[in-house]
Design a protein around this nucleic acid. Structure first.
Lengths: 196, 196
DNA sequence: GTCTATATTTGGATAGAC
DNA sequence: GTCTATCCAAATATAGAC
């Protein structure tokens, strides 16, 4: 968990509070006043630790990336067989999205909220999915190497692209429809990618 | 096109201006003041036609849905063969997303911006993709009927779900990566869905 | 590092005349 | 239906004391 503790430093309380609010309510819908109030800090303390609201959003995304990448990797590593590991990423989505109350992906949501294409916040989102793509490419290669005869026809770059599209779509579509089933059934779309 | 004309009524100018700004800049980043200024109307005229900002956003989404559903249907109807018609939806995405300067889907973006799960704006977004799902289900059924032996194994509901996930993912991932290639290559993921 | 108090702009929305 | 002028709350951010 990542719950705010009274023992946390002011800076930590601000970041934890903001992470919760930015994710659930969105970045622009969450005012600094609200964060300050809920974190139980003074206004000046807020801006002492985070000179702008955007700096806090950046810290939020960095922290979120670290936590999510770690959680996913731990989940993937529960399996040893390349086929199971390959499917682990998409199987992770449904429980993850449910545990997040169908609020979708903090990075995709941030992109929608930030129109400036040059924003560092958008860069963080792009990076997040580049790292995920790296993991998927690696798992795809492992799969091919485990049974070259069967999987020789696969193109790592093509599979990775489609896999990412399906992951993103599963998350975003589940949020829009407020229904986790699209994410669950997306597993079938991934399996179709590696059919001979 | 949907460009603002001097000859348009105040209400039309407001809606066209807002549609452009809401789409490109986002809903929350666009203030009523900015719309009023760019539409060239008085403040009171704005609130005479649209009692709240949310009412205007609703009109924007209704209009967007009508235009997009019409454009897509016209594109699909360029083809006669069920296979071509089936693929038309995903082939539409790349040129469409490019023509929108990689700003993604107005409905998905709105969902990210509106935390309230009961919002009418979220309902509009959900409805938009339900209508799209209806079209895809119909095209899938047409495909099956055109060659039952070959496509008998397909489940309309399952294919539709995966198709929607891929469409949503192609759009959202292209926005986040600021690269239209994911959308182009998503065609392959759709083809994989109907492999025997 | 943290506080209270304040500055300043922008947000959405209204009153009342024409 | 459209206008000018205005209201008030909320937005982000700062000054200066402890």
């Amino acid at each position: 968990m990542n719950k705010v503790q009274v023992s946390d430093s002011a800076k930590t309380r601000i970041l934890k509070t903001a992470s919760d609010l930015f994710y659930r309510q969105g970045y622009r819908s969450t005012g600094t006043n609200e964060i300050i109030k809920k974190a139980g800090v003074a206004k000046a303390s807020f801006f002492y630790h985070f000179p702008t609201k955007e700096a806090l959003a950046l810290a939020y995304l960095k922290d979120l990336h670290t936590r999510e990448a770690g959680d996913l990797l731990a989940f993937v590593n529960k399996w040893k067989k390349p086929y199971d590991r390959f499917l682990a990423v998409i199987k992770w989505i449904e429980p993850w999205i449910k545990s997040n109350e169908l609020r979708g992906c903090g990075f995709l949501n941030m992109v929608s909220e930030v129109p400036d294409k040059g924003s560092v916040l958008r860069k963080m989102a792009k990076n997040h999915y580049e790292v995920l793509g790296g993991l998927i490419a690696q798992l795809t290669q492992e799969l091919i190497d485990s049974d070259p005869k069967r999987y020789r026809h696969l193109d790592v770059s093509g599979v990775t692209n489609s896999y990412l599209v399906i992951v993103v779509g599963a998350i975003a579509f589940s949020e829009t429809s407020q229904d986790a089933r699209p994410s669950r059934r997306a597993v079938e779309a991934i399996k179709a990618l590696i059919n001979p």
